[in-house]
Design a protein around this nucleic acid. Structure first.
Length: 110
DNA sequence: TCTATGACTCCGG
DNA sequence: CCCGGAGCCATAG
């Protein structure tokens, strides 16, 4: 088995789990926090496999514009938006309202 | 080993 | 802010 968590994905999962309720973050923020700022796409790729995990709120992870780019990867067409709205986050046109306000930085954890 | 792909981001206009 | 193009990097085939 993996000796020292070489799984790039697993690291993304841990960060995603640390996202507080009603908060969201971007792929780049997670990637940067992991030390791979240029691997933001990998974060998205990891989220693609996150469906195997349960405690991975992928719906709280969006692109830098707060756009729900991965909503099409969810079971439902608007499932991602439903989850976000369920947490008190407004979503219009697949985009989070006041994204900068709901934005959560993994490094600050506030 | 190489090529193609992608839930991204940055840059210039 | 929107649009088009280029860069980056890990995974899959």
């Amino acid at each position: 088995m993996d000796s020292n968590n070489t799984n790039f994905f697993e690291r993304v999962y841990e960060v995603a789990r640390q996202i507080p309720y009603g908060r969201v973050t971007s792929y780049g923020a997670i990637a940067k926090f992991l030390g791979a700022a240029r691997s933001a796409r990998m974060v998205g790729w990891a989220m693609n496999a996150s469906h195997t995990m349960e405690d991975v709120p992928a719906h709280r992870v969006v692109n830098r514009k707060g756009l729900l780019t991965g909503k099409f990867h969810f079971d439902g067409t608007n499932l991602m938006q439903q989850l976000l709205e369920n947490e008190g986050i407004k979503v219009v046109d697949n985009q989070i309202v006041d994204f900068d306000k709901y934005f959560w930085d993994p490094a600050k954890r506030d």
